[in-house]
Write a protein that binds this DNA or RNA. Sequence first.
DNA 1: GCAAAAGTGTTTTGCGTACACCCATGC
DNA 2: GCATGGGTGTACGCAAAACACTTTTGC
Lengths: 239, 239
Amino acid sequence: MGTALQKTIQQLRSENREYFQIALSVDCVIFGFDNNELKVLLIKSDLEEFNDQWSLLGDLVRPDENLDNASYRVLKDRTGLDDVYLEQVYTFGDVDRHPAGRVITTAYYSLINIKDHQLKLQHNELHWHPIQEITTLAFDHKPILDTCLKQLQSKIEEHPIVFNLLPEKFSLRELQSLYEAILGVKMDRRNFRKKFFLMGWLVDVNELEQDVPHRPGKLYRFDTSRFSSGKATKKMAVS
Amino acid sequence: MGTALQKTIQQLRSENREYFQIALSVDCVIFGFDNNELKVLLIKSDLEEFNDQWSLLGDLVRPDENLDNASYRVLKDRTGLDDVYLEQVYTFGDVDRHPAGRVITTAYYSLINIKDHQLKLQHNELHWHPIQEITTLAFDHKPILDTCLKQLQSKIEEHPIVFNLLPEKFSLRELQSLYEAILGVKMDRRNFRKKFFLMGWLVDVNELEQDVPHRPGKLYRFDTSRFSSGKATKKMAVS
DNA sequence: GCAAAAGTGTTTTGCGTACACCCATGC
DNA sequence: GCATGGGTGTACGCAAAACACTTTTGC
């Protein structure tokens, strides 16, 4: 805020309520990876305007919580998970973006290992949707999703965050499929493996895949010890 | 917003005003380039809590304008300029970020050619500050500035937006000084020239610098015809 | 033994980087 | 003529990209 804000707010509070008819929400694009597809967790909209359309998970921001906390709360309430990877992307504030009134929303995306919380979805109208199959969503949630996906795509090029979408132990094939699913491209297997080993992000856990109808691959885990608080020590190009 | 928003908003409106005590603002980091330095346009804060501190230019968002419009309005009102380059960066929503109440702010940065509007600043308490010299600002404006600068740095690596900071015609020396000022690094002159010519962003206008105490350099302008709506047709690495 | 995916190296190419000398102009 | 920055080309190193065959396992 620039000049005379204190005065401005006090004036507004007493003189009219105009400025306080704006509500603020957060919307979470919750990404998961399953069956070699990138998926998003959606909920059935119960607004008449959007009957039978799917929408992102969101809620109004409470006066006593900051934006990040609001997103964490939405995730915790809906998936039961805390300790998830969460990143703010963009704030959407078009005047007519919400039919019920002026609601400005800040979009976050989140990366979740689907298998970690499959059990907790049963009593909700929640479903995982492959991003390829999502053509329309309630509100302006489709452009919000697109924006978050783009951000994710550019983020994984340099930062080791995709591991949040995978189980603790994974094969290089799974990791590559994940990159291919997010970026929408095919990659060369040998170059992919080479690059990841060079980066030193992976630790060989000396185990093999189980129950695969072909030669089992080795399993790896993400080397968390090389990264402080989930951030890469150096920028490294991935794809 | 996820489920039952209409109901939620109506409930909130009638039951209590709690959720409508959040105000929303925009704050603009207005960058300019002058004297081989990157500068930011700041205004003297008139809040007692921040006496004699500088702050970004911002204002509350009105109920009938979207976020981008609010930023444009702030810029127009303060600098007289419209048709400026503007980009949303991040939304800051900490509960205690503003002493006068709960105010969530969306940060934008803007790129301006300082010479275009020097005349319009006289009646305001506005000044251009070299970013190097800014150590503290009112509110949380210093981290906001830092965030915007980082975003700008990463943006110019791939997108031809710095031309908004330069006059229509400029020398390669000026362009390179600008990149160096934004990124905070020294660059090799020959490599810099080579890369820019390869990119094809520049058009030789067949003029030379005037009034320089040495051999005058050629002047160029940005080749707008190769870009639609200010965006690069391809991503190209700059530095 | 056959299907299916794992695992492995080399070559080529383009790009970034480092680096030094002559040129044009103003004073 | 001298100081100042303008203008130019080459060589090296690295990293990305292209590319094919052998190995292991389940059935």
